[in-house]
């Protein structure tokens, strides 16, 4: 058989789809033909490279477009949706080695996801404006403009740590009417978030880099996001007197 026929079989051969008989003939040919062997090796490398192509990232504005489009027909999500969410979902505080590499390459670790917390703080006294009302719409528990205790340091980590403390205190003051189940969920979540923070802070202390710092920040932001949701829940769990 000519090289042309053998070359036609190379893809099936590499994909393991060649019948035993054909495979043996091809293998015999490959032992004596350097041209076909080269092509086989090239295709094998091509297949391996294709399976491991890096992902592309669309423009960051894309989510906003999608949100606008789905927002139009969206059913307003009331407290029930928050309950569903907290009971239907868990938080993943792990950041894999691959994400770490990505963080080092691009330092854009999901900052946009933390839309609920807006910091209005270019000047001397930063304030925390928690967007309590964005989902429920009618909550009267607008806790806004909480002054920050930790403004002395310019450091972003310290700032986030301060926000975490503020929100923890706010939640603690409104926890009394929580069910024991919710309380235990809260404690477990916070413990996991703290464990994650401790782990990445340790790593950051041992080998500080921009990437490790970003991972620490991400861990704090994730905890903030978690606290924010419990804070919402706390405000919505109150008797609906305002309605």
């Amino acid at each position: 058989m000519a090289c042309a026929n053998f070359q036609d079989q190379l893809s099936d051969f590499l994909d393991g789809e060649l019948a035993a008989n054909d495979r043996q003939n091809l293998e015999r040919h490959l032992r004596t033909c350097s041209v076909c062997t080269t092509i086989r090796d090239d295709l094998a490398r091509l297949i391996a490279a294709s399976a491991n192509l890096p992902l592309h990232t669309p423009s960051p504005a894309l989510w906003a477009n999608i949100e606008r489009e789905i927002g139009a027909g969206r059913v307003a999500a009331g407290p029930a949706a928050w309950w569903n969410r907290l009971s239907a979902r868990h938080y993943d505080f792990s950041i894999s080695a691959r994400q770490l590499v990505a963080a080092a390459a691009t330092v854009t670790v999901a900052v946009g996801a933390f839309w609920a917390i807006q910091i209005a703080s270019p000047n001397a006294l930063p304030t925390l404006d928690v967007n309590w009302n964005s989902m429920g719409g009618t909550s009267s528990q607008g806790v806004q403009a909480v002054p920050l205790a930790h403004v002395a340091s310019n450091d972003e980590i310290a700032r986030l740590r301060g926000l975490v403390d503020e929100m923890t205190a706010t939640i603690a003051s409104s926890q009394s009417n929580w069910s024991s189940e919710l309380k235990s969920t809260y404690l477990k979540s916070v413990a996991a978030a703290d464990a994650r923070i401790a782990e990445v802070e340790r790593a950051h202390a041992v080998a500080p880099s921009d990437a490790s710092r970003e991972v620490v920040l991400a861990a704090y932001r994730e905890k903030l996001r978690l606290l924010d949701e419990f804070a919402r829940l706390a405000s919505e769990a109150r008797p609906p007197a305002a309605k």
Partner: peptide, 21 residues
């Protein structure tokens, strides 16, 4: 560290949970 309600739940269910929410 998988926190909160669904401790020890495999990753697949994360997407399912998010899909339900």
């Amino acid at each position: 560290y998988l926190a909160a309600v669904a401790i020890e739940t495999p990753r697949v269910e994360t997407d399912l949970d998010l899909a339900r929410a």
